[in-house]
Design a protein around this nucleic acid. Structure first.
Length: 645
RNA sequence: GCGCCUGUAGCUCAGUGGAUAGAGCGACGGACUCCGGAUCCGUAGGUCGCAGGUUCGACCCCUGUCAGGCGCGCCA
């Protein structure tokens, strides 16, 4: 469809020549609200009429002749108050669509794109908020790759910050445990620390004197002194592995894990600091509450200053982030060292390190960067971009995209289910923020477990004869599909108030519905082969046959056929739209609508049982086309396609 | 106080300035001796928070206003 629209515009423009006084961008190709009004719709007569102060319908009439005989267009007519509507040559259109299934029409625009997502502090288990982040980031990556872009996925690991310090404190001071004790904890370590982190936070809040010990731990971790440093390292690495394991369950993976320890160890900040100082981008505040700090000012808010370096000389989180962002664009003049962290399924996840290693990989040097971070961090992201601007990297600043999304919160009902004790001030709220510090949240693995369990029960009743292993594999795919669709179906600015019942639903607008639709399509093809001997070879032959008898279909069916096929053909447009608006709920809606149309279609028109050969062949082409589009859409959303359901 | 976001059916949410505002859930009523009922079809349900403005045309843009959320740390 993207291809057709561009071609039509181009053809039209060359015909119009100077007769058309408006810029090309004003030629908008839309879709009429009903099939009976045509397939494509031009609205420029309205704009032109305004310019000329005449009647839009008159303008439309005047330009109508230019539309006759356009390639692939059957006829054009003026409709309503001044639209020019096109009716496509359906047979030619469908044939073209079938032929170009394997050749995407989207074009890459960047040399290299980095997406940073997930970024879970390695001191506790992943929760539903992290799942939303990972699903959005991963889907963006899949879509950009489909578009032809070179994409690198990074998951930033803050392995030295105060959050890790907190759990080291908890382990040493509250639990009185050593490194050996830690190694003897064989259970899920991320779960263990979920509880310990919450307990430690509560303890620290009520024991201010503990701050001294905390500061000591932080210092020792930063300077690599044991046992604190070794403990911090052991904890963060093991929890990181647990996180990667969790993300693998929803088919999310990474290319590189940049660590804060590397940024500190390799003195990235010192380099960035020198650059910023040279440019005068940051300055020492000589008075006010920030006296003695290096601060940066925001362009729009002159009165506000953000501390980058504290009065004790240590750098804040934003400072490190500016250095990291500079590195992503290859502007820092320094690089990490790398080593493999996990090697499986034929691919390697790399991690940064401070010790020189010879490796056959390189990272960074992107021309565009997406940071998938929730909307609460908008202010900080703005400062990072400001850092680039103040170094005169305007192009990179413009291509530093904060992929912002709203958080996942908990409904009162789910609080009850989690047996969370609500404090008085929390009582009146209609939802509560997930908080690792409070130990309040739905752990990612718990949710996935419950989804799997429910899916497995369904599979047991529907496919009791399958081997246990196959049932489990299917249940996992369904759980993944359910979760990913759930995280994608909401617009990113929509706050998700998490509710178990809603998230565990497999009916209606859900991932399993999409999977089921695709599975049913596959099942029809399987039956075609088993019962009618219509296998891959016959299918290939049918598709290569140029002559399709669209006219063999009755009028009503022709309309339904076209409605389905024409909608499916808008797939790439939907992908592009999602990328441009960073709104993957569009893609989710597209998939859902496509399935609805598809399900209604095959309900109405039998494929296996159809006696008339021409009709049967048209229907096979149709469901084949839709299946292929659906498969692509599911893949881009990271929703697996089970064999059976 | 300032900044950003949100307000659409009972609930949860979609909705490129374009033609009659749509889904799902829930409710109610149905579906072929059937290509799998995780499906399909139908019914009910709307002053698109409110008030102005711009426009040939506004859920969409602008202004104001009300309500809710989130930011505005020498935390990350």
């Amino acid at each position: 469809m993207v291809r057709l629209k561009t071609r039509l515009k181009k053809e039209l423009l060359s015909r119009l020549g100077d007769a058309f006084p408006l810029p090309v961008s004003e030629i908008e190709v839309a879709y009429p609200p009903q099939q009976s009004l045509g397939d494509l719709s031009f609205t420029f007569p309205f704009k032109l009429a305004k310019l000329r102060q005449t009647n839009p319908r008159q303008v439309a009439q005047e330009f109508l002749p230019y539309f006759s005989g356009l390639g692939g267009v059957e006829r054009a007519e003026v409709a309503g108050p001044g639209y020019i509507n096109l009716y496509l040559d359906r047979k030619a259109f469908f044939r073209q669509q079938l032929e170009s299934l394997d050749t995407p029409s989207l074009q890459p625009e960047e040399e290299k794109i980095i997406i940073e997502h997930t970024n879970i502090n390695p001191n506790k288990a992943a929760h539903i908020g992290h799942l939303r982040n990972a699903c959005l980031g991963d889907t963006l990556g899949r879509c950009l790759k489909y578009k032809g872009e070179q994409v690198e996925i990074q998951n930033y690991i803050d392995d030295t910050g105060v959050q890790v310090v907190d759990v080291v404190f908890g382990l040493m001071e509250l639990e009185k445990k050593t490194l050996t004790d830690l190694e003897n904890i064989k259970d899920k370590l991320d779960y263990y620390f979920w509880d310990l982190y919450a307990r430690t936070s509560a303890y620290l809040a009520s024991h201010p004197e503990a701050e001294v010990r905390k500061a000591e731990i932080l210092k020792k971790i930063e300077h690599g002194q044991d046992p604190e440093a070794a403990l911090g390292f052991a904890i963060s690495r093991r929890i990181l592995r647990a996180h990667l394991q969790t993300m693998k369950r929803i088919d999310v993976t990474y290319d590189l894990l940049p660590c804060e320890s590397s940024i500190l160890g390799l003195k990235f900040w010192e380099k960035a600091f020198a650059l910023l100082k040279d440019r005068g981008a940051i300055s020492v505040a000589d008075k006010g509450p920030n006296a003695g700090c290096w601060v940066m000012r925001l362009e729009e808010e002159e009165d506000k200053e953000k501390v980058i370096v504290r009065s004790d000389g240590t750098v804040t989180y934003v400072g490190k982030d500016i250095a990291y962002q500079l590195w992503k664009f290859g502007l820092l003049g320094k690089d990490f060292f790398y080593q493999p962290f996990i090697e499986e399924d034929g691919r390697t996840i790399w991690i940064t390190t401070t010790s020189p290693k010879k490796v056959p990989v390189s990272f960074g040097r992107a021309t565009k960067v997406y940071n998938v971070i929730d909307s609460r961090q908008a202010y900080l992201q703005k400062i990072v971009v400001q850092g680039l601007k103040s170094l005169d990297y305007f192009e990179q600043a413009a291509k530093s995209i904060h992929f912002s999304y709203e958080m996942v919160a908990l409904s009162p009902k789910s609080l009850k289910e989690l047996a969370y004790e609500v404090s008085d001030e929390e009582k009146d709220k209609s939802f509560l923020e997930v908080s690792g510090r409070k130990g309040l949240g739905v752990k990612a693995d718990d949710l996935l477990d419950r989804l799997e369990e429910k899916a497995l029960a369904e599979v047991e009743t529907r496919n009791p004869d399958l081997p246990a292993e196959a049932k489990l594999a299917i249940a996992r795919q369904i759980a993944c599909g359910a979760l990913r669709y759930f995280m994608l179906k909401f617009a990113r600015n929509s706050l998700i108030v998490f509710d178990f019942e809603e998230a565990l639903n497999f009916e209606g607008e859900t991932g399993p519905y999409l999977q089921y639709s695709a599975v049913r399509l596959n099942s029809i093809f399987r039956k075609l082969e088993d019962k009618a001997g219509f296998g891959p070879r016959e299918l290939e032959f049918l598709l290569s046959e140029k002559n399709m008898l669209l006219e063999a279909l009755p009028e009503a069916e022709k309309r339904d056929f076209w409605d389905l096929v024409f909608y499916a053909s808008q797939f790439e447009e939907s992908v592009l739209h999602s990328i441009l608006s960073l709104e993957f709920s569009h893609l989710a809606k597209f998939a859902f609508n496509l399935c609805q149309k598809m399900n209604a279609y095959y309900h109405l028109y039998s494929i296996l049982g159809e006696e008339n050969r021409d009709r049967k062949e048209m229907r096979i082409r149709t469901i084949f086309y839709v299946r292929e589009i659906l498969k692509k859409t599911l893949f881009l959303m990271g929703i697996p396609l089970p064999e059976k359901m």
